[in-house]
């Protein structure tokens, strides 16, 4: 068990939940109202959903030895496209699109997100740009695109059907939880029930050897950055649906960093190679649990980031082989 990448994140998550329980015995209690559960645990999962989604794509990206800094910006683009297609503000560039049904709007938004990913994947896989540089381009430019789409305004909308993505619930749990679980499920199947996961790890572990055994690392990278951007698109839709508005300036701001941290906490090496989707999910949940704990414990919100950082340092140290050896010696 100690060998498993998810051991320390799980221990810490457990400890954190236990701490909450000691401080507030009602922490684990769930209320059942209006056909769904309410409570701190549900809240943590619900709030963690966007970062969980981002960290799924980010895990694969990092497994190839890359990084995707553009996911926050892609969230903003997807949210802006969806909000614009619903609200149709004057001057919205896609006003000519004759689609008004929610499924169609979702598909168009995600398709545009996917195109962003193809752009990244092309620059990195085929043009061989450094991932950090290539995705930095879209990190900056993408938010610009979102601003153009919304004309610099916050587009608000009323569409109960679409808003349900962010605030509705099904089968006793909020929709964002179901959506992220579904995406996690799809991506795990894609990586572990096909050879995609092994190829990804091979490309990240030794790119030169991967070329030598006939793995086409270009298409692998193209696919992975597209998956990452699509996951970001879904997260963007959830974020927009949650607040019933698209805020090109702030949607998904800095969330790429949370996603990278979640992956690091989850035990996937930044150098590429072996990855653990489960680890990244626990990482994402852990980070949200920290935030929730801080907010509900009345710790000054100014201290949130510092505390988060301390926890990240702790988990990473616990996983470091050097540190582990010292501790055992």
């Amino acid at each position: 068990m100690r060998k498993s990448a998810i051991f320390w994140p799980l221990v810490l998550l457990g400890a954190l939940l236990l701490l909450n329980f000691v401080l507030d015995p009602g922490f684990f209690s769930l209320q059942f109202r209006d056909g769904r559960f309410y409570g701190s645990l549900v809240d943590i999962l619900n709030r963690a959903a966007p970062v969980m989604l981002l960290s799924v794509g980010m895990t694969l990206v990092i497994a190839t030895g890359g990084v995707d800094l553009s996911v926050g910006a892609v969230m903003a683009i997807a949210g802006s496209v969806a909000a614009g297609l619903i609200a149709r503000p004057p001057g919205f560039p896609l006003n000519g699109v004759p689609i008004h049904a929610v499924p169609g709007i979702i598909l168009i938004s995600l398709a545009i997100a996917a195109v962003c990913g193809l752009f990244n994947g092309f620059l990195i896989g085929f043009a061989r740009l450094q991932p950090i540089v290539a995705t930095l381009i879209l990190m900056v430019a993408g938010r610009g695109v979102a601003m153009l789409l919304t004309d610099g305004q916050i587009i608000t909308f009323t569409n109960p059907g679409f808003a349900a993505i962010g605030s509705g619930s099904n089968l006793t749990l909020p929709n964002p939880i179901w959506i992220s679980l579904a995406i996690v499920g799809i991506v795990s199947l894609l990586t572990r029930k096909t050879a995609f996961g092994l190829f990804t790890e091979a490309v990240g572990d030794n790119p030169s050897a991967a070329d030598g055994v006939g793995i086409d690392s270009r298409t692998i990278k193209l696919a992975i950055y597209t998956i990452s951007a699509t996951c970001a698109g879904v997260a963007g839709l959830i974020a927009a649906a949650d607040i019933k508005a698209a805020d090109a300036n702030n949607a998904g701001l800095y969330l790429e960093l949370d996603a990278i941290l979640a992956v690091a906490i989850g035990g996937t090496s930044m150098a590429g190679g072996r990855f653990s989707l489960a680890g990244s999910l626990i990482g994402a949940i852990l980070m949200q649990a920290v935030t929730t704990t801080i907010l509900t414990r009345g710790v000054p919100t100014e201290a949130t980031l510092i505390l988060k950082a301390l926890i990240v340092v702790g988990v990473c140290l616990a996983q470091s082989p050097t540190f582990a050896n010292r501790r055992l010696a």
Partner: peptide, 28 residues
């Protein structure tokens, strides 16, 4: 530098060529 995948298992290192030939959708 160009041969092994050092962090993958021996089994994966052996299977990888056949897997690359079979493509994504016929995993071993």
């Amino acid at each position: 530098a160009n041969g092994i995948f050092p962090n993958l298992t021996l089994a994966e290192n052996i299977a990888i060529v056949r897997q690359a030939k079979r493509g994504w959708f016929r995993p071993i």
